[in-house]
Each structure stands twice: as C-alpha cells, then as structure tokens.
C-alpha cells in the first residue's frame, strides 16, 4: 500500500477518533450533536474507502442525515434546564477511560489474526449469483439469500414506529419555517424523489437499493413537511397505513407464496426472481420512506390518531 493511501487512511481514522472523543466530551449538547453528524459523514467516507459504496450511501442518508435530524428534533424538545445541564467530569471518568482502553487492547488481540482469514460465504455468493435474479451482490444477499433478515428488519422499523405511537404526546415546538428553506425545498424535494427512484432502479445491478432510496425519499418528505408544504400524515389515513405496512405484507405474501409453490419459504420461482424482487423493493421503499418520515417529524398526535 502506498504512502499517500496510508496518509489518507491515517488522517481519516485519526479524525474519526478525535470526533468521537469530542462528541463524548464536549460540554454543550448541541455541539455534541453537530459533531456526531460530522462523525457520521466521515464514516460514510471511510465506508467508501473500504469499497462499500452501498454503505456509504446508507450511512450518509440514514446514519448521518436521519439520525442527525432525530437528534436535533429531540434537542428541540428538551427543556432549557436540561440543555444547560453539563456533564460533570466526576471521579469515575478516569477509571472508565482506563477500563475502556484495556478492553480495547484485549479486543485488538482478538482481531489481530482476522485479516489473514477469509469467509466461506464470499465464494458461495459468487456461485449462486446467477440464480439470484439480480446483478448486484449486496442486493442479492439482502433480498434473496438472507431475505428473512431483511423482512425482519422491516418489521423492526415498523415496530419502532409502533413503539413511538405508544408514547403520550410531548410538547410540540415547531419553529416558523425559514423562507429560504421553503424555496430550496421546493427544488430539493422533487430531486429527492427523482434520485430515490433512480437509486431504487439501479439497486438491482449497482450500489443502491430500497433502504437508500427510502431514506432519500424520506429526507425529501421531511424537508417538505418541515417547511409546511406537506400536510400532516396521520395514521388514521388508510393509505398511510397501507404504505407503512405494505412493505412487510408484500414481502411476507411473496415469501409464503414461494413456500406454497414449492420454491421454499422466501424463495422465488425460476425466472420470476428479478420482477418479484423489484416489486418487493418498490413496496419496501415506499414503506421505509413513509415510516422514517413519520418517525422523524411526525408529531405524536399525527402518529397516534
């Protein structure tokens, strides 16, 4: 590996570490959140360095973007007193740091031999790619080989949404929309739909797919909602419910149909894999987009009604 690659990796790594330490140690909660968003973006860069463009996209959209929005939204709701309260550096900061360091060292011993080993699944995926019905291996793993994981993950998202629904309404604090933001979002929102659709479409052959697309769509919707350009998305609308639940339902139905037709639970009949996966992805994207939108900006009342 050449020196400038080392320089790049070293700088990225150091930066990430420094940011992480700063996130935990900085006094103001607000700065901590902003630093955490920067941390997420930096991680996306690292994923790209490590040859994982799918993840870079997902991290940028989900990890940094949506988590950041969630954190800021939460920050907006906590009281002044709570915001001002600083983390005191009490007696156990020292021992905690020492302990974490020792644990890190132990874990380094564990990871030391790993780079020289390899995985049995890589050749297995390569073998079966032809039968998977899609051209991009990550999508193949997500929707074919380990479709059950993905289905459960959709359920996790649904469950998180359901869980938020249970909470009693908290005080809404919606600031007035900023005029410039309104203007920009009119431009950005259609763009996000466009890019989302493109990501979804490309997902079968190249990096991208339902989650990235869903996150982008959600980002667009959130922008519109924040600027007041989108009406409230209440749970009481049948279509909202259908959108949110559609992903899981279609996925489950196709899985059961596969079992019924003898291709195994969550298996696709020969020749049908491509179209079915696309179908699932479309529904999953819509479902993810709606759920994330409601999760991030849905006022509790909208979510609960």
């Amino acid at each position: 590996m050449s020196l400038h690659e080392w320089m790049l990796d070293g700088t990225l790594g150091l930066l990430v570490l420094i940011l992480a330490v700063a996130v935990l140690h900085v006094r103001s909660l607000y700065i901590s959140i902003v630093l955490f968003i920067a941390f997420g973006l930096l991680l996306a860069l690292i994923w790209a360095r490590l040859g994982a463009p799918d993840l870079a996209l997902a991290e940028a959209a989900i990890g940094a973007g949506l988590t950041g929005t969630l954190l800021l939204a939460a920050y907006g709701r906590v009281s002044e007193r709570r915001r001002k309260a600083e983390e005191p550096l009490d007696w156990h900061a020292g021992p905690a740091l020492l302990l974490s360091l020792i644990i890190a060292v132990i874990l380094m011993r564990a990871v030391w031999p790993l780079p020289d080993l390899d995985s049995a699944l890589v050749p297995a995926v390569a073998d079966q790619m032809a039968q998977s019905g899609v051209g991009h291996p990550v999508t193949a793993v997500l929707l074919s080989f380990r479709a059950w994981d993905t289905l459960l993950e959709l359920l996790v998202l649904l469950l998180a949404f359901m869980a938020v629904r249970q909470l009693l309404p908290s005080l809404p604090r919606q600031p007035e929309a900023w005029p410039l933001l309104q203007a920009w979002s009119r431009l950005l929102a259609p763009l996000s739909v466009l890019i989302g659709g493109y990501l979804l479409w490309r997902g079968s052959a190249d990096p991208g797919g339902a989650f990235q697309a869903g996150a982008l769509l959600a980002a667009g919707a959130i922008l519109l909602r924040l600027t007041g350009l989108l009406p409230a998305l209440g749970w009481h609308h049948f279509w909202i419910r259908a959108l949110i639940l559609g992903g899981c339902m279609v996925f489950l139905a196709i899985g059961v149909a596969g079992y019924w037709l003898g291709t195994g639970f969550l298996g696709y009949a020969d020749g049908w894999a491509g179209p079915l996966i696309l179908l699932i992805e479309v529904f999953a994207t819509l479902s993810i987009a709606t759920t994330l939108t409601l999760l991030v900006i849905g006022e509790t009342r909208e979510v609960r009604e």
């Binding site: 080989f145 380990r146 291709t263 195994g264 969550l266 298996g267 696709y268």
Partner: peptide, 13 residues
C-alpha cells in the same frame, strides 16, 4: 431443517 429460499446451507438462513 428448512433452508429459507432453498439456498444451499452456508449461504441461507
């Protein structure tokens, strides 16, 4: 045993 999606063992859940 049930291999989900009828994929061979190390790959499938």
């Amino acid at each position: 045993w049930l291999e989900l999606g009828d994929w061979p063992p190390p790959l499938a859940i």
